[in-house]
């Protein structure tokens, strides 16, 4: 319902370009530092863990491969989405929720503005676009984190690590690695806006919907991840 109305909003005037750019800035630039930090350490930990296992098979040259596939297929999209839910989704719910309980949403409608177009659309567009971008940054930094560990602690040559990373990734991984964050971004936006606009019960209500927004987003991200993974596997096995 919200999605249908939002996309209908795209085709009608006015389109709030400035609001969308602001939201892209808040969501994208705002979430970048924690995404980079998280990505780096996840990559580093992955390298540590997998290298240990691989070493027992004498296969530590495959470290880069495992780091890259884990990151691009799963951890990059899921963790970035969870960070987005915790940071941007909660922020959206809290902001829209406060506007709802202080009658600012009603005031907006009374003054002739459609809140879906003015508030929901820009946030949805921003999340849809920024989630894959952030994920790519997270993936890259993660691979870098893995490299740092591989070359320092594991004493792997850079060329071995990088060629192993390179071999690991195929077209389907990249496709899945971008499809997932797009869907997750949409989930965070819809859940965040919906919880916000449905807030009742004053400031206590705002707290309640914010918590609920984060919990529901994360659950939906994990559940849809399962089905998206199945989809990507199904697509990759058809010739």
């Amino acid at each position: 319902m919200l999605v249908a109305r939002s996309f209908r909003g795209l085709t009608q005037r006015p389109v709030y370009v400035r609001e969308t750019v602001t939201q892209m800035d808040i969501i994208g630039v705002g979430t970048l530092p924690i995404t980079l930090l998280a990505g780096f350490f996840i990559g580093a930990v992955l390298a540590l863990q997998t290298a240990k296992t691989l070493q027992s098979f004498g296969a530590q040259n495959f470290t880069g491969r495992l780091v890259a596939t884990s990151l691009v297929r799963e951890l990059g999209p899921v963790l970035t989405a969870i960070l987005l839910a915790g940071r941007s989704g909660s922020g959206i719910t809290a902001e829209l929720g406060s506007m709802k309980v202080s009658e600012q949403i009603d005031a907006m409608r009374a003054l002739g503005t459609d809140p879906i177009r003015k508030l929901v659309m820009p946030r949805m567009m921003a999340l849809l676009l920024m989630a894959p971008v952030l994920t790519v940054f997270g993936d890259l930094v993660g691979v870098f984190g893995g490299w740092v560990i591989a070359t320092t602690l594991l004493k792997l040559p850079t060329s071995v690590y990088l060629s192993s990373v390179h071999e690991a990734l195929n077209y389907n991984d990249i496709f899945g690695g971008l499809l997932k964050p797009t869907v997750f971004g949409l989930i965070v936006a819809i859940v965040g806006c919906r919880s916000g606009l449905r807030t009742t019960g004053g400031t206590v209500g705002v707290g309640r919907s914010t918590t609920q927004s984060v919990v529901v987003s994360i659950l939906l991200i994990l559940i849809s991840d399962f089905f998206l993974t199945k989809l990507v596997i199904a697509l990759s096995s058809t010739p």
Partner: peptide, 10 residues
């Protein structure tokens, strides 16, 4: 419409 407490966009 003048809302209770103003409902100003903060």
């Amino acid at each position: 419409m003048v809302f209770q407490d103003g409902a100003l966009f903060d």
